[in-house]
């Protein structure tokens, strides 16, 4: 029983990290049909810059803020320098964002060196809770909490605010949104920066969770995020949460019971969804 609970908590926590990465990816795709292959790089930058701010200030909270800020700034740069010049050309977009991923990853090594960096859980989040005879690691609960909190905030913004409304409308029909007098490029820039900030948040939360950060982590998580975006349905914010939890849990159980297959299962799931149900598993429209 304890094992099952822990595997579940673990899977949920991983799922939340993937969700933070995937939610931005899916909105960016839905709004502008841009698939950002550099998104994982923003995740890694979030981790490195966050850990750096954390060690500089001694405050994990400031580390998180620093990561979010870094993510938003990088998002701004990416959108202006990388996405806009090739807007509308899919092949160029794919090529250029992948190239930028390479640059982001290498830049990390230039700034912080090629070696792994250790990251500690802040004291007030270290340790675990005891529920009867089940031990649950505090930090994992914290990640899950942040994940749901972010989901709640953004779901509220998407459903209840004007900008959220415009984003949802833009996902459905961006020409019409423009014809109604809305500068969709500006909206897209905001969404892109927000998505980048969320990815960076995911990265900084991941750092103490895994204990070490390394430049290639962006790439590894990006693959999971792609899988989630496909399973959840391109452009579906809530779909990406369900899919991220599914992928996180599947990874966690599999890693315990059939370790050889853990990544493979998720990849196969994605291949099957892409081939047989390209609109995603969690979207209503057939």
């Amino acid at each position: 029983m304890e094992l099952l609970i822990n595997l579940t908590i673990n899977g949920l926590a991983t799922g939340m990290l993937i969700f933070l990465l995937a939610s931005g990816l899916t909105l960016i795709f839905g709004l502008m049909s841009v698939l950002n292959f550099a998104h994982g790089g923003l995740f890694a930058w979030g981790a490195y810059s966050g850990v750096w701010f954390y060690s500089l200030t001694g405050s994990f909270f400031l580390g998180i803020l620093g990561a979010i800020l870094t993510g938003a700034i990088l998002g701004f740069i990416t959108e202006k320098l990388i996405i806009t010049p090739v807007y509308g050309n899919h092949v160029q977009q794919i090529l250029i964002t992948l190239g930028f991923m390479l640059v982001l990853t290498e830049m990390l090594k230039v700034v912080w060196g090629p070696n792994q960096i250790a990251a500690k859980v802040p004291p007030y989040l270290a340790g675990s809770y005891e529920f009867g005879d089940v031990l649950i690691i505090k930090y994992r609960l914290f990640i899950i909490f942040v994940g749901f909190l972010i989901f709640g905030i953004f779901q509220y913004m998407l459903q209840k605010t004007k900008i959220g409304l415009v984003v949802r409308a833009g996902v459905m029909n961006k020409e019409m949104v423009q014809a109604l007098g809305i500068n969709i490029k500006r909206v897209f820039l905001y969404v892109f920066m927000t998505g980048a900030a969320l990815a960076a948040l995911g990265g900084v939360l991941f750092a103490p969770y895994s204990g070490v950060i390394y430049a290639e982590m962006g790439f590894e998580f990006a693959i999971l995020a792609f899988i989630v975006v496909v399973i959840g349905g391109m452009g579906s914010f809530s779909g990406s949460l369900s899919a991220a939890i599914l992928v996180g849990l599947a990874g966690s159980y599999m890693a315990y019971y059939v370790p050889a297959l853990s990544l493979a299962v998720n990849m196969m799931l994605m291949a099957i969804v892409l081939i047989f149900r390209p609109q995603g598993l969690f979207t209503a429209k057939g």
Partner: peptide, 19 residues
């Protein structure tokens, strides 16, 4: 997979080669 649109194809090839 080649019926898929360019994004999806790129992603899928990434995943399959990962496999």
């Amino acid at each position: 997979t080649l019926r898929l649109k360019s994004h999806f194809f790129a992603m899928l090839t990434l995943a399959v080669s990962g496999l």
